[in-house]
Design a protein around this nucleic acid. Structure first.
Length: 203
DNA sequence: GTACGGATTACCT
DNA sequence: GGTAATCCGTACG
């Protein structure tokens, strides 16, 4: 994956990441997942972004150069992974919401539970990280420089299959059309409006 | 120092 | 389809 493709605004990068592949080489094995759903977060201009209120220890990675992995904990239980985009100093990132396991499915199922059907192994941001084996220790990893987690280009995705919609589960700026996913793909998570979502303007 | 509320998931009905 | 689980970052006093 070329860093130039990532060093752009998140909402430009997010649809292009559909079809890209994240691979994690862990001691217990390798899992690769094709990305099927993403969400763009536009840094200081985006009320729903962790970076909206400025730089903090948690979100520092987002302010760094493109191509890094930003990992945060959600609801005390789950890990969620973002690919940092934009120029160094600009805190934009793309949340990886779902994907299709294409390598290491046995290991992914071991991590997720034996009863989980294949299409749901990496469906949802928390599940995606669990299937891939991503935790806080991967926060800040450089996906383009031979870390244990790497981003590569997969098969090109037909533009006609890409859908756009409002972001899932955010209480602020939930109506921004910053969620991108593959039409009809069973690995894409279901849309859910945040119970705290209030009417708001935005792009 | 204390309080609040999640970029969610899984399980129960 | 609704709701409990769970803990830490951020905000405010």
């Amino acid at each position: 994956m070329n860093v130039a493709l990532l060093a752009r605004p998140a909402e430009k990068v997010a649809p292009g990441l559909l079809g890209a592949i994240l691979t994690h080489e862990a001691p217990e094995g390798t899992v690769s997942i094709t990305i099927t759903e993403t969400e763009a977060y536009s840094g200081s201009a985006d009320p729903a972004s962790h970076a909206y209120r400025g730089r903090t220890p948690r979100n520092a990675v987002m302010f760094g150069p493109a191509g890094r992995l930003y990992v945060y904990r959600s609801h005390g239980l789950h890990w969620c992974a973002n690919i940092v985009t934009g120029a160094d100093g600009i805190a934009t990132a793309v949340l990886i919401r779902a994907g299709r396991v294409i390598e290491g499915q046995d290991l992914a199922r071991t991590r997720r539970g034996s009863k989980v059907e294949s299409a749901r192994l990496a469906r949802g941001p928390g599940n995606f990280c669990r299937a891939l084996g991503i935790t806080a220790e991967h926060n800040g990893a450089d996906l383009l420089a031979g870390a244990s987690v790497a981003l590569s280009e997969g098969e090109p995705v037909p533009a006609a299959l890409i859908r756009v919609g409002p972001r899932v589960g955010v209480s602020k700026a939930h109506d921004w059309q910053h969620r991108f996913y593959l039409a009809g793909d069973p690995t894409v998570s279901a849309y859910r409006l945040s119970p705290r979502a209030k009417p708001s303007g935005g792009a």
